[in-house]
Computed example of a mutant assay.
Amino acid sequence: MAEKHDLKSLASAIQSFASSSPFLSYLTELYEKYESVNEGTVANYIPELGKALPEWFGICVATVNGQVFEVGNCNQLFTMESISKPFVYGLALEDYGREYINSKVSVKPIEETLNSIALDEKSKRPYNPIVNAGAIATTDLIKGNGVGARLKRILDMFERYTGRKHDIYMPAFVSDKAYGNRHRAIAYLMLNFGIISEKIDETLDLYFHQSAIQVNAHDLGVMAATLANGGVNPITGERAIDERYVQDVVSVMQTCGMYDSAVEWAYRVGMPAVSGISGGISAVVPGKLGLGVFSPPVDEGGNSIRGMKVCEDISKDFGLHIFNVAQPKHNLKDLIESGESVDDW
Rank of each mutant, 00 (worst) to 15 (best):
F193G: 07
I168T: 03
E198G: 10
I168P: 05
T162P: 02
T162D: 03
L191T: 05
E198T: 12
S197W: 15
F193M: 08
K177V: 01
F193Y: 15
K199S: 14
L189K: 15
G194F: 10
F173H: 06
R164Q: 12
G194M: 09
P171T: 02
L189I: 10
I196Y: 04
Y188I: 08
N181G: 04
D176Y: 09
G163V: 05
V174E: 10
S197E: 12
H183Q: 06
S197I: 13
L189A: 12
G163P: 06
I186C: 03
R160V: 01
H183W: 14
L191S: 11
S197T: 13
I168L: 12
A187F: 14
E198W: 15
I168F: 11
A172Q: 00
D201L: 14
P171S: 04
D176V: 00
V174T: 06
A172N: 02
D176S: 04
H166W: 11
L189H: 15
H183S: 05
L189W: 15
T162Q: 02
I186Y: 04
Y169H: 08
L204A: 12
L189G: 07
I200G: 12
S175C: 06
I195T: 09
A185V: 10
P171N: 02
I195W: 08
R184T: 06
T203K: 09
G194C: 11
R182A: 05
I196H: 06
I196E: 02
F173A: 00
H183V: 02
F193H: 14
I186E: 01
N192L: 11
Y179K: 06
Y169N: 03
N181I: 13
M190C: 06
I200L: 15
R164E: 09
K165N: 05
K177T: 05
T162V: 07
I186H: 03
T203W: 08
Y188D: 03
Y161E: 04
I168W: 04
S197Y: 15
D201S: 12
F173E: 01
H166K: 01
I196M: 08
F173Q: 02
K165R: 09
R164W: 05
Y161Q: 05
Y179Q: 07
K177S: 04
I168Y: 06
A178E: 10
K199H: 15
Y188V: 08
I168K: 01
I200H: 11
M170W: 13
K165P: 03
A185N: 07
H166G: 02
R184M: 10
N192Q: 11
D167E: 10
F173S: 00
A178S: 09
L204I: 13
N192V: 04
G180A: 05
K199F: 14
M190Q: 03
S175N: 01
G194H: 08
E202T: 10
D176N: 04
E198P: 11
L189S: 12
Y169I: 01
D201I: 13
K199G: 12
M170C: 00
H183L: 10
H183C: 08
F193R: 13
I168A: 03
A187E: 06
